[in-house]
Design a protein around this nucleic acid. Sequence first.
DNA 1: GAATGCATGGTTTTT
DNA 2: CCATGCATTC
Length: 772
Amino acid sequence: MLDQSSRLLQGLNPEQQRAVLTTEGPVLVVAGPGSGKTRVLTHRIAYLIQEKGVPPYQILAVTFTNKAAREMKERIDRLVHGEGTDGLVMGTFHSFGVRVLRQNPGLVADKLQLQPNFLIYDTGDQLESVKRAIIALNQDPKQVTPRRMLSRISAAKSVLMTPEEMLGETQTYDDEIAARVYKEYEKQLRGNNAVDFDDLLGLPIRLFDQAPELLERYQEQFRYIMVDEYQDTNRVQYVLISALADYYRNLFVVGDPDQSIYGWRQADIKNILDFEKDYPDLTQIHLEINYRSTQRIVQAADRLIRDNTQRIDRRIRTENAEGEPIALRELADQNHEAQFIVSEIRRLISTGRFQAEEIAIMYRTTAQSRVIEEAFRVTNIPYRIVGGLRFYERKEVRDVLAVLRLLHNPADQLSLERIIDNLPIGRGFGPKALEAAVTWATLHQRPTIDAFLAMVPRAIPSDLDDIEPPTFSNQGRAGAERIGKVLAGLREKQQTSTLAELFDAIVHDTGYRQTFNEGTEEDLQRWANVSELRSDLERYDQVDPEVALAQYLEQVSLIADVDSMEDDRGQVTLITLHSAKGLEYPVVFIAGVEENLLPIRRAIDEEPFDKTPMEEERRLFYVGVTRAEKLLYLTYAASRMSYGQYSQGAPSRFLQSIPAETVKAVTRQSSRTSANGRLSGVQKGRLAQSVSTTYTAAPSPSWAEAAKASEPAVKVELPDYQAGMRVFHAKFGEGTITEALPRRDDIEIAVSFKLHGDKRLMASLAKLDIIE
DNA sequence: GAATGCATGGTTTTT
DNA sequence: CCATGCATTC
């Protein structure tokens, strides 16, 4: 029954072929790491186009990053050679959401009250807006922190919950504050003609609700829909995609529950289970053969992940060579760790065995990259850092962007205030004067920018002519006139110049350029960053001036770090474990495989109440391990500087899962003296001498010791929990028990919480009250 | 209204 | 340790 003749099936195993050929109906592919899922996706799309004659515009493929989309498109182009992939819709959920909103400006204005020039607020803008919302509600941003509120708002949005619905479900005072902040935040966003990341998914759904004929149009267009990294989709994404697929039902999703690492962003593995429920007629395909890594790496990864309890029992295997043992290395502190990694890399490169671009260093927190970078700096090995302080989040870049954004969307008060606060033209124009401007704007129902524009003579008549300009104090008026004049000038320039010329005018007329004249190293770097913006903008000179700015700003909002990762030859990659998802390297170093780092401290703290975060940490480590093709190094430090203080570290509990026969461990035996197997305190300054190492064949017994220490010590009398009972948890609120498993001295309980989803808890620690 | 100095607390991870 | 935010001072 299989069409074996197709060139597109060559080199694929039977299961992969089945995934390519099952073009009709719902398909769920569970694909282990390195099992060739990208291959399947690209071949499948090529097959649809070439063999089945499907026009590319009828295909929608959603990927996790724009980079993945770009690469996949290139591969498909090569596969269909010349046939053309024009019209193929490929990108992230967010870019698809924007696309829908941008393609229907009339409906968006009519149904969502959003003007076509709306901006996409990034995390920084969001935090600022949330902070303002908190202040507007007379709350103290120090107690009600913007960060926490934003994450609650985002969580609500990712299950399509409106502020009103949230207000209706409040259980605590804090819930109520959160709901009210959410409402005020939304008001601000709409007032500034702006949307946030979550809106890019939620608003299209609301639009489809209010304009069903629009949804029908998309449903008819997208005859084949594919979703990659399905395990990391959240509720809104699922709703969006299943709405689109509802007509043809040709929905093909690929994912690996074991690689779900975005739970904190509301990604929900339940989407996989729901998929089976919503499409009972689905075809399920399992890809379990790993083509990427050596046997030792695959074996270690398999054992590692099997210690998670919240998972479907699966196994990954490989027919690859056994390979070299995984190198496990204990170092005295983070500097030694970095030194070791860098000198090991130097060795790998100088022996000619590997090229720099075949090597990656991965870590849990971005902060870890700094020490490693320092170690690289004194070598001549080229490196690049993915993530960390993002380019577009640098203050000097945002300052200039604020002007561009304001010019594009005059309603954006946030950018206007940013300009006044940070650029020289705003000097002398303080809170008092701003208040006068805002009051005037509110009174006349105009954007605040008009308060400034009203202060300067106009060449062409405008509706501002009929309005009395705002009144300021003497100093305020001087400031307002200055600001108004510059902004009016830039607006004119915007009509007649290229973006690069507009950039020049901005940095000159606002006086921003002059602020970099100190000549310090730092100033030079900051100005270099600003200048990089200019070369960015130059690339838009060919674009239709009408839309160039809009396109540019959108690109800035949706770009991710990995997206701008160029395939530069000859550089070692430094990357977070999260960003490394989907990538692969011949040589991988994972640094900081320690308690409190991997797993992160927070997951350890939460573990007694909720094992979910800990299991996600383990998956994250699993993702890292499975990025490696040939060589894998795991390092940890006996002592690590954090918050300006050295503290003792312990090897990660996850290392206990890794079978001894796959590992060659190098421990600092000389520093392990205490009886309980913990690392002895190593004094600062004497570290260098203590690195004398001993080779041992097996992991140190200290790990087993450490594990024992985490057993609960106190015996507690427990209520008789049964499935079906309604319970209350201090943090998660109300829920229903779905499962109660007797454990030694305890009961493991699965609860489906109304607001926080499914959790597995230990009864002795969770303090669940039964609701009668 | 701006510059300086002190206190505070924060690091998970990102479209 | 660092960055940020606030208070004090001019």
